[in-house]
């Protein structure tokens, strides 16, 4: 079976969908965070696939940037989750509700 662009795009769409669903329905902050990373990885797949089929390096370079950003996001995001946990002892998104009003 020949791998075409569509296959990669569908794969990435599925991954992205899982990511979005994860962020939207999961209530554990860590899991939500991981879903976010999943979204970024779906993006990476897209970029790589397009890059290959367009014969350009742009997408691949972009991937490095995205990974870099994902790393920084991970650092900041985890730090935020830790500080929250220190104050509230929970990482359940539903319990983050002291701002309603």
């Amino acid at each position: 079976m020949e791998m075409t662009l569509q296959h990669y795009l569908i794969l990435s769409a599925i991954l992205f969908g899982i990511g979005i669903t994860g962020v939207l329905i999961r209530r554990n902050l860590i899991v939500m965070f991981m879903s976010l990373e999943l979204m970024l990885n779906a993006v990476n797949i897209n970029l790589a696939a397009y890059s290959k089929y367009l014969h350009t390096m742009t997408g691949q370079i972009f991937i490095v940037f995205v990974m870099c950003v994902a790393a920084a996001e991970a650092a900041v995001g985890l730090a935020l989750i830790i500080t929250l946990f220190r104050n509230k002892a929970t990482i359940n998104a539903d319990e983050i509700n002291s701002l309603r009003g």
Binding site: S12, F16, V23, F33, L84
Partner: peptide, 23 residues
């Protein structure tokens, strides 16, 4: 804390969507 987390999740989510569109 909560503001940070919320902003983070939503912000990262939105940049993910933006990025996906960008691809």
């Amino acid at each position: 804390n909560e503001a940070g987390i919320k902003y983070f999740i939503m912000g990262a989510f939105s940049s993910g969507i933006f990025l996906y569109g960008l691809t």
